[in-house]
């Protein structure tokens, strides 16, 4: 297990389809060697398809996949050295944990003594050093995914592909496994592509996020960019920006936590802020914060989040926005993902 074999991954104009249904449309993406990039997007957007194309499980209808300088497009999955960890751990039920982890080394005919060392090393990395003799049915869901991770890293892959590996686990376990994957990936320097539909997961794990919407990459960049400067209305919507019609017909987008709710008789907003009259619909208590839903005069419904004052339902209130925190998109920008 070394990081020497990690490759950059480059997708050049990759399209893919299932039968006659196109799923990916001319996707181009460059991932540096040793980098962890999250492919983020809603269900059915094509992110898992992109991962399958990188793995070699699905042939692209056009475009190429490169691992470094090597065009791997014609290579079958078994020759790419790009193990994939799936939503289900998919441990082979007839093999013990150690045998499962040794599987990639067995098929490469690695000598036994070397194999044992590498399996022990991989299991120690995922903190399952004492679990080698167990069968998969004797493991919990989290342990199973850790074994699947060990199995993926044991053969010093060029690229590691993770397809929502924690989606079946509870939140506490997910948090622990995110940290573990990040730690293992950084220690070994394995180029990793991580598919998720969870923004928080993508933000906490990856150095960059590639947002996939409707079969294409809508925006690539650090997580912060998506929360501060979304490049399109669809990206803004996916990342939870609140959207309303501006006076000039353009779309105005803002973060719920950056807006203010002005209750009847409340303090006026700072000079220069945009103030819009609204009706308070209801407020949800989030524990440390409150989330209020408002209906603006133009009919748009938006949310404001923060330590909000109590406001009665149907009360007349105002929404105050800092102009520096507003993103404006043209009136004809598609409001949904298609055609971002």
């Amino acid at each position: 297990m070394t990081s020497d074999s990690a490759s950059p991954v480059i997708l050049r104009g990759v399209s893919a389809a299932y039968g006659d249904t196109p799923v990916l449309r001319k996707v181009s993406l460059e991932i540096d060697a040793g980098e962890l990039v999250a492919l983020l997007g809603p269900s059915g957007c094509g992110k898992t398809t992109a991962l399958k194309v990188i793995a070699g499980l699905l042939a692209p209808s056009e475009g190429e996949v490169y691992f470094g300088a090597e065009n791997v497009t014609p290579l079958p999955a078994e020759r790419r050295r790009a193990p994939m960890v799936f939503q289900k751990a998919l441990l082979f039920p007839h093999l013990t944990v150690a045998e499962n982890v040794a599987f990639p080394l067995d098929v490469q005919r690695i000598p036994t003594h070397q194999k044992k060392l590498r399996v022990a090393e991989a299991l120690a990395l995922v903190r399952l050093g004492d679990f080698g003799a167990r069968l998969p049915r004797e493991l919990s869901g989290g342990q199973e995914q850790r074994v699947a991770l060990a199995r993926a890293i044991v053969s010093a892959p060029r690229v590691m592909l993770l397809d929502e590996p924690f989606s079946a686990l509870d939140e506490t376990l997910r948090g622990q496994l995110r940290l573990l994957v990040r730690e293992v990936q950084q220690r070994l320097g394995i180029t990793t592509v991580f598919v998720t539909h969870d923004q928080r997961e993508a933000a906490t794990m990856s150095s960059r996020i590639a947002l996939v919407l409707d079969g294409g990459i809508a925006q690539v960049g650090p997580a912060r960019d998506f929360f501060t400067k979304p490049e399109s209305l669809a990206v803004a919507r996916f990342f939870g920006w609140q959207v309303l019609h501006g006076a000039n017909g353009n779309w105005l987008a803002f973060r719920a936590e950056q807006a203010r709710l002005i209750a009847p008789g409340g303090d006026a907003p700072p000079e220069g802020w945009l103030v819009l009259p609204a009706k308070h619909l209801f407020t949800t208590d989030l524990g440390t914060q409150r989330l209020a839903r408002l209906r603006l005069a133009a009919g748009d419904e938006v949310e404001v989040e923060g330590p909000l004052p109590y406001v009665a339902p149907d009360a007349a209130v105002a929404l105050a926005l800092d102009p520096g925190c507003i993103r404006e998109f043209p009136a004809d920008a598609p409001a949904t993902a298609r055609g971002w």
């Binding site: 999955a77 078994e78 289900k88 998919l90 599987f103 199995r151 053969s155």
Partner: peptide, 10 residues
């Protein structure tokens, strides 16, 4: 899915 897993493992 076992086939896919096994193939990506080489």
């Amino acid at each position: 899915d076992f086939d896919d897993a096994a193939r990506t493992l080489g």
